[in-house]
Write a protein that binds this DNA or RNA. Sequence first.
DNA 1: CTGAAAGCGCTTACAG
DNA 2: CTGAAAGCGCTTACAG
Lengths: 352, 352
Amino acid sequence: MQLREDVIMAPEDPRRSRVTLLDVARQANVSRATASLVIRKSPLVGAETRQRVEDAIVALGYIYNMGAARLRAERSHTVGVIVPNLTNPFFAELLGGIEHAIDTAGMVVILANSGDLLTRQAAVIRRMREHGVDGLILCPAADTEEALPAQIGAWGLPAVQVLRQVTANADYAGADYAAGMRQAVDYLASLGHTDIAFAVHGPVHSAYHERVEGFREAMTARALQEDMIIRVPDQLGQIADATRLLFEQPRPATAVICFNDVIAHGVAAGLYDRGLTVGRDFSLVGFDDVTDAEAMRPRLTSVSTAPARIGENAARMLLERIANPGLPARRNVSATYLHIRQSCGPAPHFVT
Amino acid sequence: MQLREDVIMAPEDPRRSRVTLLDVARQANVSRATASLVIRKSPLVGAETRQRVEDAIVALGYIYNMGAARLRAERSHTVGVIVPNLTNPFFAELLGGIEHAIDTAGMVVILANSGDLLTRQAAVIRRMREHGVDGLILCPAADTEEALPAQIGAWGLPAVQVLRQVTANADYAGADYAAGMRQAVDYLASLGHTDIAFAVHGPVHSAYHERVEGFREAMTARALQEDMIIRVPDQLGQIADATRLLFEQPRPATAVICFNDVIAHGVAAGLYDRGLTVGRDFSLVGFDDVTDAEAMRPRLTSVSTAPARIGENAARMLLERIANPGLPARRNVSATYLHIRQSCGPAPHFVT
DNA sequence: CTGAAAGCGCTTACAG
DNA sequence: CTGAAAGCGCTTACAG
């Protein structure tokens, strides 16, 4: 940004006299069409002419008017991103990955929060359509109809589902949650645990089901009891109390896999409150492997889903679909891996 | 969203035949100008006419074209938000507050991440200008020139600084960081601590200076040594190791105030690694009081800055400035308060 | 309360 | 490689 030039060249009343492409063209002694070509980096323009136009742009402090361009060109260089919530650090990382990829493509993200509410989701989708976004990255709110992506497609709006999927007939970028559950179960089983709980919370959606099913299947595959699924509160501060549920079972758990790291954090607190030492008296596995995992004590073993990477994948898929709307529906399900740290230990009385 | 209607009414080729205000007007048997008035909720239109137009909108699945409106009306209903980073949960909460207030005003946020880099900041500001945002909420990158807000003002773009300020001659929404430091120091002093450290990291900017100065002044006011300011790494995972710095001092610290909760989290881990019990062997105060504080064990005492509220304040200020550009520069510095939990205890050998 | 006309700042064919 | 003209979908005066 050439602060100096811009300041000097700023017109008297900045609100009224916007400098336009025509001004640039005149200053450079070319037609408006030519100036437009230069801006859009067309190879049709000669180097000397191009330079004259670029000089004029700088001299006048010209700012491209994306809105006007969009009206004619039907492209807004804008992507809508709808997330169900912003406070889980997981979504912040996802958003970071999306923003980075979209920015790199020279586009801009319009952000909205659906609060995991269908009515708000509908409202923000409409608003994004009004703003003429070129595409949508949507983490569908719980209970979203399976038809929504087709709907959006019928509107001519390229879209990709991220993290959660309501249909296989639309693009989707996520992680292999079921495999992640298997990794966690297998690991705990290898430490001799048989009474393994799964602590869940939040809205029910595809990622929820995939994890629950993944848990059940992995447990069943090892002939372990697969129904110790306990619900804890959504609020981090209230999870600790719910930890007692782990012990109010026919056969108390000796290990728990958590739906996400937020739960793991809360459960760790709850175990502490009971005087139990994580990794020795009780084993704990998180899910997402968000930054905090490294700073917990003992360090949290967690299934890594790399949300920033999922975000980048989703953005890339969307960009490709915008470029080529005819593509068949695609899926990008990235692998998870179990990041083993210190929060698990052998089951009681288990000898390796 | 009337899924059913829209589906049924969707034109054959959604990309080509956009339904326009003129179509709505024809369907409702009014002129385009009248239809426009209905959409903008003008009181000039009679109830019966209004109803006819609204029916036509639903029947045709009309979507307002904000881009076209903007071109004529010079308002985009769009606000740019630039943050230096997305991973600190603090910024996620701030963003949540901004998004909520902007959404409530019927506008939309365009998000960008400056990465605390001046060059990226300049690039995203330019991009937002190209997109014709009606205003900007900017958390200025470190080392931003004092002149930038004036610059932005000269471009005719309403803007408010949030969390960090580079000049008093532009709107600013933040928290009273110095008062927060004073609350923390006073509290620790009341517990008998005299060797109090301040653990900092990250880029240097106004919020940094305000906290450091607040710390120094509060310590000096109590005739305590005010220069035990230690730098720790930016990465959460690496902070624990740096905790040793607290003890490699002429007079080792017995308490530490942290620049933010991220540091507090890392330091808590580091203290744990040394076999120290927080709240008994060593006292720890965080800053920001972000959700995690409640789930740490022992629960973290932290200076609450309520980032979501700051975000809402910033959004409100911006909306007011957009409505009334002639306003003098304003400041909204919200009070902090010390949320006392469990991470502090009396100084060694201190009797109340 | 409604209609006809002009115009916002670009891009897009179409000639040259 | 460049220029003149039309048009994207709205809103804005201005008449009626």
